[in-house]
Simulated assay, not measured.
Amino acid sequence: MSYWKEIIEGGWSLVEGMRVTVRRLVRPVVTVQYPRKQLTLSPAYRGHIEFKVFPEIGTHRCIACGTCQRTCPSGVIKVQGVKDHARAPKVATHYMIDFTRCSLCGLCVECCPTQTLKYSTEYQLEEESRWDGVYDLMARLEERRT
């Protein structure tokens, strides 16, 4: 009796599997033909970080406080800044980040006291070597502004 029961259960399993397959065959294809078609990103997409440009000053507000550098769990951020004179605020001159090791956790964006960091909507950051993934956000900001 168990022999016939196994045959019936196996046949039913085959019918169920074929039903799922046929249902999938009649659905429309949802594959995006990348790179001929660009992806439409969700407004909640969180890409790599970059500097905000504030219109009232025409640039960023990074004061090189190092909060993002200390908060980063991966330890991939290096910030350097200078003061023009003793009473002037510090201004960031270099903001290096290694995106090959960045975990995209967003802690640097959340802890920034001047709110000068934001998430990018760029998703095409492929490079040929590991060292090409190390970016200076100051240089990228200058490229965007020109």
Rank of each mutant, 00 (worst) to 15 (best):
M1C: 12
S2T: 05
S2F: 00
W4K: 10
K5I: 10
E6F: 14
I7N: 10
G11C: 10
L14P: 05
V15K: 14
V15P: 13
M18E: 09
M18Y: 11
R19T: 14
R19D: 13
V20H: 02
V20P: 08
V20K: 11
R23P: 04
R23G: 11
P28M: 14
V29G: 12
V29D: 12
V30Q: 06
T31E: 02
V32N: 11
V32R: 11
V32H: 09
Q33V: 05
Q33S: 02
R36M: 03
R36D: 07
A44E: 13
Y45P: 01
R46Y: 01
G47V: 08
F51N: 12
F54D: 01
P55G: 05
E56G: 06
G58K: 02
T59H: 00
R61P: 08
R61F: 04
C62D: 02
I63V: 13
I63D: 14
G66W: 01
G66P: 04
T67V: 14
Q69K: 12
T71C: 15
Q80V: 10
G81D: 04
G81M: 11
V82D: 13
H85C: 15
H85Y: 15
A86H: 09
R87I: 02
A88Y: 14
V91H: 04
V91D: 09
A92V: 03
Y95F: 05
F99R: 02
F99P: 01
C105S: 03
L107E: 07
E110P: 03
C111G: 15
C111L: 15
T114W: 09
Q115C: 05
T116R: 10
L117H: 01
K118Y: 08
K118H: 05
K118V: 04
K118M: 06
S120T: 09
S120H: 03
S120R: 06
T121E: 04
T121D: 06
Q124T: 07
Q124F: 02
S129D: 05
D132K: 03
D136A: 11
L137P: 00
L137M: 00
M138K: 13
L141M: 08
R144Q: 12
T146M: 00
T146H: 06
